[in-house]
Each structure stands twice: as C-alpha cells, then as structure tokens.
Amino acid sequence: MPDDPHADTAQLLELLSVSLGVYYSDFAAASASQNLTASQSKALVVLRRGPIAMRALAETLACDASNVTGIIDRLAKRGLVRRETSATDRRVTNVVITAEGERVTDAVRANMCVTRDGLNSLCDRDRDSLYALLNRVFLVRPE
C-alpha cells in the first residue's frame, strides 16, 4: 500500500472481488447442501422479499426468461415455490415462496459457515458500520 493510508478505488474493487468470490463459493456450497443450485437459491432469496412476476424475477436475476422458467419449475416440483395468477393482470404469473421454501432458504444461510464466521467475528459497532456502508454503496442511491 502506498504512503497514503486511504484505500483507493482500485484497492476497494480488488477486495470486493475477493470477498464476493469467497461469499459466492460459500453460498454455492450451502446451496448444494440443500440439493439446490446457486441460481435456485438466489431465486428463493429474491422471493423472500415477496411475490414477483416471472419477467421481473428474470430481470432481477439477470438471466433469460426461459432460464427462470426452468429454475421455477424445479423449485415448484420440490414445493419450495408456487405460481399464482396476478390479481391485477391475469396475463401475469407471480411466483411466491412457500413455507418450505423459506425453511430451505434459512438452511442455506445457516450453512454459509465461512461468511457467518467472518461476520460473527465483528463487534457490534463494526457490524453496524459495515451494514451502513453496504447500504450506502449498493442500495441507497441519491436522486
């Protein structure tokens, strides 16, 4: 690191890349422990926020609508999600997570040992700071 003690954007990007690689590997392994692909688990995580139209789910997952159909078909076959016709537009199919889907999603999160151990090593103040920073960087956008 140069004499300047502040991390520059390139250093932050590198650390984020490494961190996300560790997170993704942990997520994929935890998903596999529940006989899910990472894409299936990611869909369940999105559905925890509430019902969503198939097309919007495809956009959120950044994949083709036909891929989402296959993902949802496999999740529905296991009873982890169900399809419902939209109350406002009968042409739209929403996907809803089931209680079993929520249980499996919780199990995936519980099996993310590397990520959980890292986060649990933080004191409350550092955890609050990380939460605020991640919100500010990735979720809260100035208008």
Rank of each mutant, 00 (worst) to 15 (best):
residue 3 D to C: 05
residue 7 A to W: 07
residue 7 A to T: 10
residue 8 D to W: 01
residue 8 D to I: 09
residue 9 T to A: 13
residue 10 A to G: 00
residue 11 Q to K: 07
residue 13 L to A: 14
residue 13 L to T: 08
residue 15 L to T: 01
residue 15 L to A: 15
residue 18 V to H: 06
residue 18 V to W: 01
residue 18 V to A: 09
residue 19 S to L: 15
residue 20 L to E: 10
residue 22 V to D: 05
residue 24 Y to R: 14
residue 24 Y to M: 12
residue 25 S to F: 00
residue 26 D to K: 04
residue 27 F to Q: 09
residue 28 A to Y: 04
residue 30 A to K: 06
residue 30 A to W: 02
residue 33 S to T: 04
residue 33 S to P: 03
residue 34 Q to E: 12
residue 34 Q to L: 02
residue 35 N to F: 13
residue 35 N to T: 13
residue 36 L to D: 03
residue 37 T to D: 12
residue 38 A to H: 08
residue 39 S to M: 12
residue 40 Q to C: 06
residue 41 S to V: 04
residue 41 S to A: 15
residue 41 S to P: 03
residue 42 K to S: 11
residue 46 V to K: 14
residue 46 V to L: 14
residue 47 L to T: 10
residue 48 R to Q: 04
residue 48 R to P: 00
residue 53 A to K: 14
residue 53 A to H: 05
residue 54 M to F: 03
residue 54 M to L: 10
residue 55 R to I: 09
residue 55 R to C: 01
residue 56 A to P: 00
residue 56 A to V: 11
residue 57 L to W: 03
residue 61 L to E: 02
residue 61 L to F: 00
residue 62 A to L: 08
residue 63 C to A: 14
residue 64 D to C: 07
residue 64 D to Q: 14
residue 65 A to E: 11
residue 67 N to A: 13
residue 68 V to G: 02
residue 68 V to Y: 05
residue 69 T to E: 11
residue 69 T to C: 08
residue 72 I to K: 03
residue 72 I to H: 00
residue 72 I to R: 05
residue 72 I to N: 02
residue 78 R to F: 01
residue 79 G to S: 00
residue 80 L to M: 04
residue 81 V to S: 08
residue 84 E to N: 11
residue 84 E to W: 02
residue 84 E to K: 12
residue 86 S to E: 15
residue 87 A to M: 13
residue 87 A to W: 07
residue 88 T to P: 01
residue 89 D to L: 03
residue 90 R to Y: 08
residue 90 R to E: 14
residue 91 R to C: 09
residue 93 T to L: 10
residue 96 V to C: 05
residue 97 I to G: 03
residue 98 T to Q: 05
residue 99 A to T: 11
residue 99 A to L: 12
residue 99 A to V: 07
residue 100 E to P: 02
residue 100 E to N: 11
residue 101 G to S: 01
residue 104 V to G: 00
residue 106 D to W: 01
residue 107 A to F: 00
residue 107 A to S: 01
residue 112 M to T: 03
residue 113 C to E: 10
residue 114 V to P: 00
residue 117 D to C: 06
residue 117 D to E: 06
residue 117 D to P: 00
residue 118 G to W: 04
residue 118 G to F: 07
residue 119 L to W: 10
residue 120 N to A: 12
residue 121 S to M: 09
residue 121 S to N: 05
residue 122 L to F: 09
residue 122 L to D: 06
residue 123 C to M: 10
residue 123 C to V: 04
residue 127 R to V: 07
residue 127 R to K: 15
residue 129 S to V: 14
residue 130 L to I: 13
residue 130 L to A: 15
residue 132 A to H: 07
residue 132 A to V: 07
residue 133 L to C: 15
residue 134 L to I: 14
residue 135 N to W: 09
residue 137 V to F: 10
residue 137 V to K: 07
residue 137 V to A: 11
residue 138 F to G: 06
residue 141 R to E: 02
residue 142 P to S: 01
residue 143 E to N: 04
